[in-house]
């Protein structure tokens, strides 16, 4: 006897729908890039997943229908620069699905967030391609030219926003002007925030992780800015720049690789938030979401072990 609530496939689909606003915001500011990346990612995910599942002798249809491969591909495609060369997302998605999921036994058995594993792999292997973002709205033809390297024209790309901000800050630029330039990023973050709230309302994710992630970010960012306000990003920028909202509501909440106990999820989320700011501020990489999540994925069994809820009739 099962409830008539959402099933696993529907849950995955709901998460994908919740991404629409954030993706649209990205489209508004940077054009067709994100759409092309998502399409490339999804197609490669379907191919890789089918091939691997067939090799493992499992039902390809059942595996594709759960939507987890598509979701992984979309999350990765959103995270990488929208004008990255076509093979980047293909390689990333293949790595995420094969090494992040299938080699562990498929959906539900992976200790790491597959999308973030793919992201980390790409960032380490192809740092240049992974940090070159468009600075303006690009039409479909411009994107196709750029992604498939048909024309080699310059002037449409810049560094990752957070990287840019960090470099400028250390060079002594005015924070106010930077904030204006960050408007596009803020809107994208707001888009993901609204999508996240939708997931909370549909009870697909629980509040513990996103709230704890944001609290972790606020805590460490406040501490750091108290130490030296001039040299570091203002607190609110940590919330609306980079992958904060995507990370808090869509990445850290991946149930498979997250902690499962109520107290554990608070600890897990808070530490992810702290790590995000620490990596952004002191690390060598532009954003810290992927590494923060992967590091905390490793700690999940430990957290789960020590945060078991109180069992009825036991003290």
């Amino acid at each position: 006897m099962h409830s008539t609530g959402l099933n696993t496939n529907q849950i995955m689909r709901q998460v994908i729908y919740a991404l629409v606003l954030g993706v649209s915001a990205s489209y508004v500011f940077f054009g067709w890039g994100i759409i092309v990346q998502i399409l490339l990612g999804v197609v490669s995910a379907l191919i890789v997943e089918s091939a691997f599942v067939a090799m493992r002798g499992r039902s390809v249809l059942a595996s594709l229908s759960d939507g987890s491969a598509v979701l992984t591909a979309i999350l990765l495609a959103i995270s990488i620069p929208s004008i990255a060369p076509w093979w980047l997302v293909v390689v990333g998605v293949a790595f995420a699905i094969i090494f992040g999921k299938q080699l562990y036994g498929g959906l539900g058995n992976n200790p790491f967030n597959p999308a973030m594993l793919g992201y980390a792999f790409l960032l380490i292997s192809y740092p240049l391609q992974m940090t070159t973002w468009p600075v303006d709205f690009l039409s479909l033809s411009q994107v196709v030219d750029e992604v498939f390297n048909l024309l080699n024209f310059d002037g449409i790309s810049g560094a990752t926003r957070l990287d840019d901000v960090k470099t400028s800050l250390s060079l002594g630029s005015d924070i106010a002007t930077l904030q204006v330039r960050s408007i596009s990023q803020s809107w994208i973050n707001i888009g993901f925030l609204v999508g996240g709230i939708y997931l909370l309302a549909r009870k697909i994710i629980f509040w513990h992780i996103p709230v704890a992630v944001l609290a972790g970010i606020l805590t460490v960012a406040s501490l750091i800015s108290m130490l030296d306000a001039q040299q570091h990003l203002p607190v609110q920028n940590h919330l609306i720049l980079g992958g904060t909202m995507l990370g808090a509501f869509f990445i850290a909440t991946d149930p498979v690789s997250a902690s499962t106990t109520p107290r554990g999820r608070l600890i897990y989320g808070f530490l992810i938030g702290m790590l995000i700011v620490v990596i952004r501020t002191y690390g060598g990489y532009p954003d810290g979401v992927a590494f923060a999540v992967l590091l905390m994925n490793m700690v999940v069994p430990l957290i789960d072990h020590y945060t078991q809820p109180k069992v009825f009739g036991r003290s």
Binding site: T8, D66, G108, N109, P255, V256
Partner: peptide, 8 residues
């Protein structure tokens, strides 16, 4: 389907 540790 596989358990996705959704916490329900």
């Amino acid at each position: 389907k596989e358990c996705i540790r959704c916490n329900s």
